[in-house]
């Protein structure tokens, strides 16, 4: 076993270098026919070990923002740095969970082989691959599903597979793009608690994009509110609710309602 649990940097980090640093990021699509400014001016840092949620109304360029942080898209102006280096392509230390698990999982591979793929392309030896696949599948509560195919599982279970796959190679940063938007409410609560637990277990930094303010407040250490297109950061709110969070007591906390009200105001009437 290598590096179980705690990750170097959570407590003993000497440098305060952020995992992600966005500096005046601007992204413009299209050319001569008509330009569309998806992101006008985005600046924020996310520190190691932090759980940050990005909220904004639909059309706020949230997906563009996530693609930029993943290195899948290049900013038109400004800089996007991952661990101090400008993002030119996708670095090996980033995991991404997309909203649509049906499109991001590979239906021709079994669950175990889906999870194994990033390890295979990294040249991890076979025995260790099997061990790590079993480990992450157990973490997401799918210890027995390895032989199934993704399409044989429910939506919530498929998204768990996608989460397991992006944790298998132990990224420093996990980016999540509205990952629970297409599952039912009950499953969503379960997955929210799951992601809080695995974040603790793997010591990973998480940036979670959502349009759901309750979800953002419940999960985050910090909420970054983004305005409607063209996107700018309207406010960054520190969430100081007690940890570990609990679906019933946390949401009954008067502070929860306060954060919720404040953020709702920001998103609806910026």
């Amino acid at each position: 076993m290598t590096t179980p649990g705690k990750r170097p940097g959570t407590a003993e980090s000497t440098t305060a270098a952020p995992v992600i640093s966005l500096q005046h990021v601007r992204k413009v699509y299209g050319g001569a026919a008509g330009e569309k400014v998806a992101l006008a001016d985005i600046t924020f840092d996310v520190a190691r070990g932090e759980f940050a949620c990005v909220v904004g109304p639909s059309g706020a360029g949230k997906t563009t923002l996530l693609r930029t942080m993943a290195g899948l898209a290049q900013p038109t102006a400004g800089a996007a740095l991952f661990e101090g280096t400008p993002l030119r392509s996708v670095p090996p230390g980033i995991g991404v969970v997309f909203q649509d698990y049906g499109r991001s999982l590979y239906p021709w591979l079994s669950v175990a082989r889906n999870v194994e793929l990033p390890l295979k392309v990294r040249g991890v030896p076979k025995a260790e691959r099997a061990e790590r696949v079993a480990e992450v599948l157990t973490s997401v509560g799918l210890a027995d599903a390895g032989r199934s195919y993704p399409w044989q599982l429910s939506g919530g279970m498929q998204q768990r597979v996608a989460i397991a796959r992006s944790l298998a190679y132990r990224p420093d940063l996990l980016l999540m793009d509205e990952p629970f938007a297409s599952v039912d409410a009950q499953t969503r609560f379960e997955l929210e608690d799951l992601i809080l637990r695995v974040r603790q277990e793997f010591g990973v930094t998480v940036i979670f994009v959502t349009h759901d303010i309750d979800e953002a407040v419940y999960l985050a250490d910090r909420v970054i509110a983004v305005s409607k297109s063209p996107g700018v950061v309207t406010e960054i709110v520190d969430i100081t609710l007690a940890s570990p969070r609990d679906q019933i007591t946390t949401k009954a906390d008067p502070a929860f309602a306060h954060y919720r009200e404040h953020l709702l105001g920001l998103v609806m009437h910026p």
């Binding site: 693609r67 993943a70 899948l72 392509s89 996708v90 090996p92 980033i94 995991g95 991404v96 997309f98 649509d100 499109r103 991001s104 590979y106 793929l117 990033p118 392309v121 990294r122 796959r165 992006s166 190679y169």
Partner: peptide, 10 residues
């Protein structure tokens, strides 16, 4: 999305 996923997975 399948291609983006592959890039992300390395």
């Amino acid at each position: 999305v399948k291609l983006d996923t592959a890039r992300v997975l390395g």
